[in-house]
Each structure stands twice: as C-alpha cells, then as structure tokens.
C-alpha cells in the first residue's frame, strides 16, 4: 500500500503541468486492472489512460460471430468458445441469444475432451483473441486432434494493429503500455519499433496495479527526459525474445494475413488463418463459411475511438441509442471497450 502511494505521488510530481498526455493500453486485462482498481481516479487530471484496440471481444469481426452462430444451429455441430464471446451482439443476436448447440470453455484443450466425448458430432472451436490465445490453440493442434474437431479462427496480432495506430498522423497517443501476456509470447523486442521508429515511449507491464503504476512512472520519466525507449517492468515473465517454442508452433499452423477488425476494417497482416495444408481442420473451409458483409452503423465512430482519435462522448450515438444493453458499435460491447467504460464510469 505504501509502495502504491509512493508511485501515485511520483506520477503526480512527474506529470507535465502544461500539457495533456494520452497513455494507451492495448490489452483487455490491463483495462480490467485499470477500471477494477480505479486507477484513473488516482491520475492527475491531465493524464488520460485510454484503451486501444486491446479488447479481443470488441474487435472480433461480426462475420466470424455470425458464422459461429449459424454453425451452432446445425444439428451435427457443437460450438465451443470462451465465456465472454457468448454475449457479443451482432445484427442477428449473440451466440447465447441466437445460437443453438454451444458451450463455454476456459482453455482450448478442454475442447479435446468435448470432441472425444461426442464422436457423432462435429465440434467447432471458435478460437478468438490475440497471441495469448493463439499459442494454446496451436498447442492443441500440435497434440493431435480427433477427426471431428475443427477450428473457426478469428485470431489477431497486437504489434501489427499498434503500428496502424502510430502510422495514422491524427492519432495523438503519447505512450504505450504494452501488454504483458502478449509480450510473454512475442517478446518485448516486438515493441522496439515504437520508440525507435516513431518516438513513442513504450513500457511492457504486468497486471497488478502496482506494476501498471510503475510502467506509468517509467513513461513519465522518459517524457520528462525527452526520451523514447522500450522498457520492461514485467521481466519475471517477459523475455526480450519471448517464448520461441510458442512462436514456432503458431507459425507452424497459422500464417499472417489481412483480417477484419470490427469497426476498423481489414488491416493487412494483422491476423492469422490456418495454413493451406491444415485446411481439413479449418471450419471456414470444411463448412464453406461465407464472408458476411459488415454493415457500418451510420454515425458510429468506434473506428476512431479504438484508434484513440476520438472520445466516446464525441459520438452522436453514445448513451442515446448505443448502450451496453443495446450496443451499436464494438467499443460498447464488452466491459473492456472504451465506450462501455465511459458509459459506466463517467
């Protein structure tokens, strides 16, 4: 507790007096810690902690979710996915409200048991998320899967979307807190380009409030000194080179390609699909799933919010027609989406 107070005091003394700073996290779990521990209330007024496109539920494409819903309605299919994917709304409802045979898993290897126990069914694992969930899916494939198990992949890559962020001249992000779990897989080196090429201070952090506050202190020291460096305050878990075995496994089964980010659109090389030779495992191919056109909601500015260009309060739909119970855009979908957080905490 004393340590926390010390860090908060340091943040207040280091914060520049004359300008606003926008520090972006790109990780659902960071956002969870920030809101859960009320860290925003401890910040000086001119330091904003903003959530970027780090909420895997929010950025999962509507087309993938609708395909998952439709698969679950088939008599011969059991759809398995993570808990918070079940309530993500689409124009045809959520998996929970409109789906048929679905079940929740907390880790990919659990679907193996489901497939073995239901040999007469086709079990489809809807594999969603960033590098942290891709690695266990790849490990599952490496273990060898029964003939009745298929993967519906909607995997996305974090460093790649962050580069889109900084390439956009309108984005006013002053610093990044890089995600600890993702970094454990990809390595802290993956973020080197941000301070090096774009002059943005970047600190890899873990998920305890104290660790996140320390990352903010480090960022403020860098800004004070006029430097932009890569630092890592989660060294016990994150190594510079990351988890090589996990990286090998991921790229044994998957390849980088252009994928659709809900509310943002297609971004080259920002996601993963199963390689051609594993087509027999790929639910998109096996079930011949169509690409369903995502209709942009008129007035929704989630794409700007996710990229840190606009605030939820700039959106005409915010709090009027777009609410957590009836979200119009992806940022209102989950508790980690920027609009949802603004709705509940402002």
């Amino acid at each position: 507790m004393d340590r926390i107070r010390e860090l908060v005091n340091l943040i207040h003394s280091l914060a520049p007096k004359d300008k606003k700073l926008k520090i972006m996290n790109v990780c659902g779990s960071h956002e969870h810690t920030i809101t859960y521990s009320g860290l925003r209330s401890l910040m000086p007024k001119n330091i904003e902690l903003v959530p970027g496109p780090g909420c895997p539920v929010c950025v999962c494409s509507e087309s993938d979710i609708i395909n998952a819903i439709n698969l679950s309605k088939r008599d011969d299919v059991i759809l398995a996915t993570y808990g918070d994917m079940l309530r993500v709304p689409t124009k045809v409802g959520s998996i929970r409200s409109s789906g048929g045979n679905y079940l929740m898993v907390s880790a990919p290897h659990e679907v193996l048991k489901v497939a073995l126990e239901n040999p007469q069914k086709k079990v489809v694992f809807f594999s969603v998320g960033f590098e942290t969930t891709t690695a266990p899916t790849a490990a599952l494939l490496e273990m060898g899967v029964p003939d009745n198990l298929f993967i519906l992949t909607s995997q996305k890559l974090t460093p790649e979307i962050m580069e889109v962020l900084v390439n956009d001249s309108e984005v006013g992000v002053d610093a990044f807190v890089a995600p600890g779990h993702v970094s454990a897989i990809v390595g802290s080196k993956a973020w080197e380009i941000f301070p090096k090429n774009y002059g943005i201070p970047t600190v890899v952090a873990g998920f305890e409030p104290e660790n996140l506050l320390l990352a903010i202190v480090k960022i403020l020291y860098q800004i004070k000194k006029g430097k932009a460096e890569l630092e890592n305050v989660y060294k016990g878990v994150v190594k510079p080179e990351g988890n090589r075995r996990a990286q090998e496994l991921i790229y044994k089964y998957f390849y980088k390609t252009s994928v659709n980010w809900r509310g943002i659109g297609y971004i080259p090389d920002s996601g993963l699909e199963l390689k051609e030779e594993y087509g027999y495992l790929d639910a998109k191919k096996v079930f011949n799933l169509p690409e369903i056109k995502e209709e942009k909601v008129p007035g929704c500015i989630c794409h700007e919010i996710v990229l840190g260009k606009s605030y939820p309060t700039d959106c005409k739909l915010f709090k009027k027609v777009c609410t957590p119970r009836n979200p119009k855009g992806p940022c209102m979908v989950s508790h980690e989406g920027a609009c949802n957080i603004w709705y509940r905490f402002s």
Binding site: S37, G38, R40
Partner: peptide, 11 residues
C-alpha cells in the same frame, strides 16, 4: 463507490 485496495475509486 468502492475504495479499492490501492486507494482508487470505482463506481
């Protein structure tokens, strides 16, 4: 409001 263990406020 909840005064969190780290002293933050959460609604």
């Amino acid at each position: 409001f909840l005064k969190t263990k780290v002293g933050g406020l959460r609604r």
